[in-house]
Design a protein around this nucleic acid. Structure first.
Length: 180
DNA sequence: GCAGTGATCATA
DNA sequence: ATGATCACTGCC
């Protein structure tokens, strides 16, 4: 487990798959302040993650895996650290990482990073494509995560766009954002 | 405020 | 095969 202590921040250390092998609720909180990195055509870009959401598994009615294991949700059941990408509203590709423990179908949605606010815009900024779906987040894939900074303050609020899940789940504070 | 856009999933 | 439903955004 990687821990940020006092002193100079350890930027540039790639988060290994084991890092993601924790409950989504914990992981989502810890990923705020981490860095999402992309390499495309030889160019590397980095954005500090500012907003995430946790999707806990089949018991979480807002989670895709609550509808069972399907062709789309299959990758959520894969190893932690796997990228889960999907299209919403016919337009926007969402970036998620599978959380642990393996096999329960939990993931963390990366909503905002750097100056880019909103998961759809982030998908565009990172030039996501469906062939990243199911791949491990690592340098070879061209999309990975690095250790970043510990935000001074993190807010927890209800997730966006999940009212259909009912108040019990829509109301839970599973969305995490850094102090702006 | 709401139209656009297309994969996905349930119903048949 | 058909139709409703979206982890949203941008322009009215």
């Amino acid at each position: 487990m990687i821990e940020l202590k006092g002193g100079p921040p350890n930027v540039g250390i790639i988060l290994p798959p084991e890092y993601f092998a924790r409950p989504a609720e914990i992981l989502a909180r810890d990923l705020v302040g981490a860095v999402v990195c992309r390499r495309l055509a030889g160019e590397e870009t980095r954005h500090v993650i500012t907003e995430t959401e946790a999707y806990l598994g089949p018991h979480d009615l807002a989670c895709h895996s609550a509808r069972g294991r399907t062709a789309r949700t299959e990758v959520m059941y894969g190893p932690p650290g796997t990228l889960y990408i999907y299209l919403v509203y016919g337009l926007h590709l969402m970036l998620n990482v599978v959380a642990g423990p393996e096999g329960i179908g939990a993931a963390v949605l990366i909503r905002s990073a750097g100056a880019v606010q909103g998961p759809g815009r982030l998908g565009k900024e990172l030039a996501l494509s469906m062939d990243l779906n199911g791949r491990e987040g690592c340098a070879l894939t061209g999309l990975w995560f690095e250790q970043g900074f510990k935000p001074s303050r993190i807010f927890a609020n209800p997730r966006i766009g999940v009212v259909y899940a009912g108040s019990r789940w829509a109301g839970r504070k599973l969305r995490f954002a850094a102090d702006a």
